[in-house]
Design a protein around this nucleic acid. Structure first.
Lengths: 247, 247
DNA sequence: GACTTTGGTTATCGTTTGATAACTAAACGC
DNA sequence: GCGTTTAGTTATCAAACGATAACCAAAGTC
C-alpha cells in the first residue's frame, strides 16, 4: 500500500524547509500575475494551455500549483481585489479641516490610479459578468465605506447638519454614486471599449471632481430646502437655483 | 451529378414563395431574441446546445438558420445595436429654443431607457471585452453625434460663441463624456454588478442632469475665461467661481 | 550516498462542444 | 398526386480542453 504510506509521510512532514516554501510562493505569485494579464486579455474562457505557453511551461505543470482552473481563477480574483483596496482611503475622506475640493481630489486621484487600470477593470468586469461574488464585495465596500463618507463631506461643505450613515437619502447617495460612475467610466471607455483617453487621467479626475463640486452641493442644498422648508442656506451664495442656465 | 443539379436548382429558384420567407425570418428573429437573452445571461461561451434547449429545439436545428456560432453572434450584435439607435436623438439635441435643462432631460431620459437595460448593457460589455467592432461603432456614434451636440448646447447656454465640432476642446468633450459615464454606470451597477437601484431610473437621470447643469456650464465658463481672458461672462450670474463651497 | 520531495515533462483520458451527415415528414408549387 | 423544399430529427464526427498518470531529474534531507 504505497498510497497510504505517501499520505502519512506528507501529513507528518516535519520540516517545511523554509526557502523551499518561500520560493514556491514566489513562483505561484508569478504565475498568478501572468494569469491576471492573460484572463484580463482573453476572458476566463481562455485555455490553460495558452496560459502555460505564455509562462514557458507545459499545461500540466500548472496543476502543480492549482488543483483546478476554477481554483486558479478564484486566486486571481483574490489577488486582484485584495491588493487594490487601500485602507487609508477611509481616513482620507474623514480627515477634518480639509476643504471639500482638496479632500475629493486627493482621494479620487489616488482611487483612480488604482481603479482605472487595464487589468483591474477588465478582470472586474468579466468576474461581475460571470456572477462572481468578490466583485460585488468590492463594490459593496465602496458603497459602505466611500460613498457615505463623501456624502457627509459634501453635506458639511454645504452647511448641512451631520447625520448618521443610515439617514442619508437615496438621492444624496445616488449623486455620489454618479461621481463614482464617471470615474469608472474613464476606465471602461479606455480599457474595455478601447478608446484613447482625450487627456491625462489626472486632468479628467480633477474635471470630474470640479463638476461635482460645482453641482452637487447645490443639489444637496436643494434637497435640504425641500425637506426642511428653506431653513438651511448659510452656505449658499444667494444665487437663484434656476438661473438662465438651467431654464 | 446530383450535386450540381441541386445547386443550379437553388440558384435559379424562381419563386421565393412569399409567406415561407417571411415566416422564416420571423422564426429567425425569435431565435435571435432568445439568443440575446441567453448570451446576455451566460456570456458568448454559452453552448449552442443549451440555447437550443431553451428554444425547445435540438442543437443541429440552429444550423438551419446560421452557418456557425460566430455568424449567430454576429447577428446578435447587429440586432442589439442597430435596434437601439434612435436617429431623432440628434434632432432632439439641436432643436433651437429649448432650454438646456429640458433638452438634456428629454434626451437622456429617452437614451437611458434604451441603454440602461439588462440585455443591452450585458451584451455590449461582453462584446467589447471580446474585442468586437460593433460595440466601438456604437460608442463612436455617441462620440460623434451626441457628445459634440451636448457640448454645443452647453456652450450656448453658458453664453459662449458657437464653434465647429472640431474646435471643441478635449476638456469640454470629456466633461460631457463624464455625464455619459454616470448614465452608463447606472446600468453597470444594476445589471452587471447586480445591485438594486436606489431610486427609479428617471429620478437618477434627472439628478445626473441637474448636477451636470449646475456644474458643467461653470466649468465651461472657466475654461473660456482661461482661454480668452475674462471676455465672456454675459450668461454668468456674477457668483465668484470658487465660493465657500469649493474652498 | 541512499531516500524523499519537488517541479517539471510526455502521453493520454474523458467530456464538452461546434459542426455535419443522413434521414423524415410536412408544406408547397404545379 | 408528384417531385421539391424545408424545418426539423437522430446519430456521429473531430477538435478542443480540463485533468490525470506515469515518469524523470535535480535539489534537499539525514
Amino acid at each position: 500500500m504505497p498510497r497510504v504510506r505517501t499520505k502519512v509521510a506528507r501529513e507528518a512532514a516535519p520540516k517545511p524547509s523554509f526557502d523551499r516554501g518561500a520560493a514556491r510562493e514566489q513562483r505561484e505569485a508569478m504565475i498568478l500575475d501572468e494569469a491576471i494579464r492573460f484572463f484580463a486579455d482573453v476572458g476566463f474562457a481562455g485555455q490553460t494551455r495558452e496560459l502555460a505557453r505564455r509562462l514557458g511551461l507545459t499545461q500540466p505543470a500548472l496543476y502543480k500549483y492549482f488543483q483546478s482552473k476554477e481554483e486558479l481563477i478564484e486566486k486571481v480574483y483574490q489577488r486582484v481585489f485584495i491588493s487594490r483596496w487601500k485602507s487609508e482611503w477611509e481616513r482620507m475622506l474623514t480627515e477634518p479641516a480639509v476643504p471639500l475640493k482638496d479632500k475629493l481630489e486627493r482621494f479620487y486621484l489616488d482611487y483612480a490610479r488604482i481603479v482605472v487600470e487595464h487589468n483591474f477593470i477588465r478582470i472586474t468586469m468579466q468576474a461581475a459578468l460571470a456572477g462572481d461574488r468578490l466583485t460585488s464585495r468590492y463594490v459593496t465596500q465602496v458603497g459602505e465605506r466611500i460613498v457615505p463618507r463623501v456624502c457627509h463631506a459634501v453635506r458639511e461643505a454645504a452647511g448641512l447638519p451631520p447625520i448618521a450613515d443610515g439617514e442619508l437619502s437615496a438621492r444624496e447617495l445616488q449623486t455620489v454614486w454618479d461621481l463614482q460612475g464617471a470615474i469608472i467610466y474613464l476606465a471602461v471607455r479606455h480599457h474595455i471599449y478601447g478608446f484613447a483617453p482625450l487627456e491625462p487621467l489626472e486632468t479628467s479626475v480633477r474635471g470630474i471632481v470640479a463638476t461635482f463640486i460645482a453641482g452637487a452641493p447645490q443639489v444637496f442644498g436643494e434637497l435640504a430646502r425641500v425637506d426642511a422648508g428653506e431653513t438651511v442656506r448659510k452656505a449658499r451664495t444667494g444665487r437663484k437655483s434656476g438661473s438662465s442656465l438651467s431654464k
